[in-house]
Design a binder for these strands. Structure first.
Lengths: 200, 200, 200, 200
DNA sequence: CGTTAACCGAGACGGTACGTCCTGTCTTTTC
DNA sequence: GAAAAGACAGGACGTACCGTCTCGGTTAACG
């Protein structure tokens, strides 16, 4: 046990959420780099001390706030057809990224993670891997059910589907809309589907 | 011609390259965030003045240095078969990203671009779009030659191929090796190839 | 009471004096213009932040340091004869100017004050006027006691006595010694003394 | 002979005056410290090069400009009474200091001279000593003519008269007007005049 | 029911980098 | 060879944040 601290003034737990709320709002308003700890403290009507007592650095606050803001893991419903399930999942993710303060934050975090190994680990372990695990399970089930041809690397498949989405999100060179998602899925699908024949 | 300024001491053009060289080396050694303008000036044996006369901020120096380093990368598509050509291009890009100082820099630039609109524009216009244009032309030629089935959005195709690559590059959750590239290409290929037949 | 600020970490008051000490020593060693804020911070073993929190500019630091150094200089006029009192005061001032770090500083301050109205005000209000007020009171008492002839403008008298002293101090064209002070006083005295008669 | 340079483009002698004019005007407008060499060059519609070819530093330009602007040495007319002559000389000096750009500059020069020994020398040799020499001669003649009592140190007398004037000029604590000058002269006079008697 | 210990706010602390400004020198073309 | 234009190295400026610290003052559970 790390601490069974019993005496002393207990932490004000409303502060945790107030700080994360302030952090994620400010990041959404100004962009990650332009947000200072002082500004977060001011917005949350608290002090730097209270913040540093909870998190070691800005990235950690924003990371936790992002995870809280993120939708809980959704296991894909089994009843829909394969294509519809994949499109629904990708659409939900795109919507989260594009319409919520928390979602817009992930790109900043990914960006900063390039110079912050601890943050990179946190993103992978708390965001990426859980989602990949779910997706992987779904695809392997589909594979077993004969919906995917043999020889598909499910890990590469996940990247083939979600990679383009993150790519446009991070580079911003083109829209992430229904049409784009369908194109990506269909291009993958027809390669994934078994039983295809080709004339050379 | 941008300027026909004739009087006054001309700029020392060796300084331009010296500064960019220093910048990109330092970024490679210490990481983008840890590099200061003073350090660049010292490494390039010049002064901050000379640097600020040329570029408005660190990102601009590094961006130009990156572009110079990446210049020789554009290889005209050769006469190989479609699949080989695509794999060769992607492999070359992956190699640039992973083995050269300039290449390792792009992720930092993409990161910073999230809070620097001018840099984001610069990346799109000077790096991304030129490459996409070349790729687009290649794919459209292939389409005309009957190597792609109808209905393929070449823009989405580019993202389907390169998106996964950038995705792993930026998130670092898995390796970018020969096998991965082949998986991505093959998944795309088999959906792209015309004349396929499927039994549902 | 200047402030009843109660919260927050209190200022380290030893820093105030350490900074002023460093400032005035450096000015004495190198001359006002050659002293930098960084050098003061280094000498005082503190940071620029701490200095700028207290004073807005170099002149303000040095001004306050000068005043602190000059504080003990104000000696109440004693019971000596008029001429002796005046000579004693002028000698004390000359000695302060010529032999102490703080005293040598005043000329630099007067210099800078020519392009710094706030400093000029500070010098007048905190240095010049207090001393003139004391001197003025002394001369008016003497006037009442019949030691000065009527029609003497005490303000002009002060300038007549101290003006030559500052003049030589600032221009440095000649020595400020006992003999000079006596000459000045005697020239003034004989014009000031009422009812004087002289035999050639 | 220093140089009988015959070849090459001759110096543009109008530039000398243009630069000095610009320098002294700018000092008058903004104060010595706020004037930069670049600003002088711009105002004089010339370049820094041309300035540095002529003078080694800002102080030297301004010093020479001041001397040019200063009235030529005036030997006091013999025909006036002693008191009138002295008052006329002091009034002329006060007027120069207070109403002309050049005159307002001297205080800045004296100020800067405290940290510039070469300038201090220049001021003494080119401004102060010539004037003191003339005044000294005048007072010694007066002394011989019996207008001054014995034992007067003419050097101290000059300081007693002009010191208060420079003092008010430099400190700016009070006006330099006709009344002030008369007070100073009269206080000195009555001490200087031999054999004087006073009623009441 | 007082002690105790951690919390809270406010803000000072040492430190680092910033981007600007000025200095005095230099390098080039033009006159 | 001077003039003009402007680039050059160097160095101080004053500002902004960082992450740490020191205060006076809560706020509960423990004893």
């Amino acid at each position: 046990m790390t601490s069974n601290r019993s005496t002393g003034r207990p932490r004000d737990e409303t502060l945790d959420t107030a700080i994360m709320r302030a952090a994620i709002d400010l990041v959404d308003e100004r962009g990650y780099a332009a947000v200072t700890i002082d500004a977060i403290a001011e917005r949350a009507k608290t002090s730097k001390t209270a913040i540093y007592r909870r998190w070691p650095k800005k990235a950690a606050i924003v990371m936790e706030a992002f995870l809280v803001a993120a939708e809980p893991l959704i296991t894909p419903p089994d009843n829909l057809p394969f294509r519809d399930t994949v499109i629904a999942q990708m659409t939900a993710l795109a919507k989260f990224f594009q319409t919520t303060p928390g979602g817009r934050t992930i790109t900043d975090l990914i960006a900063v993670a390039k110079t912050d190994a601890a943050l990179a680990d946190a993103i992978r372990e708390n965001w990426l891997i859980p989602r990949r695990t779910v997706a992987c399970a779904y695809f392997q089930a589909a594979q077993k059910a004969g919906e995917l041809r043999d020889g598909i690397d499910t890990s590469a498949l996940i990247d083939a589907l979600y990679g383009p989405l993150y790519f446009r999100l991070l580079l911003g060179h083109d829209a992430i809309d229904r049409s784009f998602i369908e194109h990506i899925v269909d291009m993958a699908m027809m390669g994934i589907a078994p039983n295809q024949e080709k004339s050379s």
